[in-house]
Simulated assay, not measured.
Amino acid sequence: MMVERRRALGLRQADVADLAGVSERFVRELESGKPSVRLDLLQRVLDVLGLELLVQVRSAGASRP
């Protein structure tokens, strides 16, 4: 979703990195599915892209990873 949104906004990874104050490498790794990230840096990128992170309570039947 992040890649599609970035492209829809006409932004390059370097543009997002500059606007969010993170490294281009961070954006690249985030888009490729990096398994762990700093939440504050993720939030900066999401803000630039006009996206938000939602947290929901799992249903009772949901399995744990």
Rank of each mutant, 00 (worst) to 15 (best):
V37H: 06
D40M: 04
E31M: 13
A8M: 03
V45P: 02
M1Y: 07
S23H: 15
S59A: 11
G61Y: 14
E31Q: 11
A8Y: 02
L53G: 01
M2C: 01
R64F: 13
R6I: 00
L42A: 11
L41W: 11
F26N: 04
D40C: 01
G61F: 11
A62V: 12
L42V: 08
R38P: 01
S32C: 14
L11D: 00
R12S: 14
A60I: 03
G33Y: 13
Q56L: 09
A62F: 07
R7I: 05
D15M: 05
R58D: 13
S59L: 06
G21A: 09
Q56D: 14
V16P: 00
R64H: 12
S32E: 13
V55L: 10
R38L: 08
L39N: 10
L19T: 00
L53P: 02
L54D: 08
R5E: 01
V37K: 02
E31P: 04
R6K: 12
S23N: 13
S32W: 14
A17D: 08
A20W: 07
P35N: 11
R64V: 15
L30M: 07
R28L: 04
G33E: 07
A60S: 07
E24T: 13
P35R: 12
S23I: 13
L42N: 09
L42F: 03
V57T: 09
V55A: 11
V57R: 12
V16Y: 02
V16S: 00
P35E: 14
M2W: 00
G33T: 13
R58K: 15
R25P: 04
R6L: 05
E24C: 05
A14H: 12
E29K: 08
L42S: 05
R25W: 12
Q56R: 15
E4H: 10
L51R: 02
V48K: 01
R58L: 06
S23T: 15
D18M: 12
G50A: 06
Q13E: 15
L39A: 15
V57M: 07
V22G: 02
A8K: 05
R6P: 00
L19Y: 03
A62M: 12
V48A: 00
L41E: 11
L46I: 03
V48M: 04
A17F: 14
D40A: 04
G21T: 05
Q56K: 14
L41Q: 14
M2G: 04
S63T: 11
D18Q: 12
R25A: 10
R12E: 03
E52R: 12
D18S: 15
A62I: 06
L39D: 13
M1W: 06
S23Q: 10
L39P: 08
L53K: 09
D40W: 09
S63W: 08
G50Y: 02
M1G: 12
P65H: 14
L41K: 15
V3H: 07
V45Y: 01
V57K: 14
P65D: 14
L39Y: 10
Q56Y: 14
S23R: 11
L30C: 01
E29S: 09
L53T: 05
L54C: 10
R28H: 07
Q13L: 11
V48H: 02
V48I: 08
R64S: 15
L19V: 00
D40K: 05
M2L: 15
V55R: 06
V45E: 02
E29C: 09
R5F: 01
S63K: 13
V37C: 01
E4K: 12
E31F: 07
G10C: 09
L46C: 08
